[in-house]
Amino acid sequence: MNIAFLAILVIIWSILFFYEQLTKTTDSQQIFLYSSPSFWVVAAYLIYFAGTFFLFIYSQNQNLEEQVSEISIQYSLINGVFVLIKNILLSVAMFSKGDSMDKHPGKYRSSTF
């Protein structure tokens, strides 16, 4: 599958996720978004795919035989940076405590700002 297409899909899905989260908070459920791991996971993939989107398009359109080494260096450099950011955000997601409300009801409800 075309990776740029995939990137667009992921970005759209992440935006939809955020939109849904925003509309959900207007109900009685009042948890801060950033206390839930899913927020960090989605943010990680959103930033990764948004960042590498142009890179993917660019690398697809390049004539690879001409400047293989330079392209691959640039590619791996930019990609590496975003993979790093993505992994940091994913690890934040792992270390943030779960949003399982049934286990600790009310624990993550905001009482103070």
């Binding site: 978004l33 950033y34 943010a43 959103l46 989107f53 890179l55």
Partner: peptide, 29 residues
């Protein structure tokens, strides 16, 4: 194109995330 495109997309994505967080805080408040 690649450089600014990447930066632009990154800025948009980060901006979106920050906006969402602050908007939600405002709603909750």
């Amino acid at each position: 194109v690649l450089f600014f495109g990447t930066l632009g997309m990154l800025a948009l994505a980060v901006g979106l995330v920050i906006f969402i967080v602050f908007h939600q805080r405002r709603i909750i408040r």
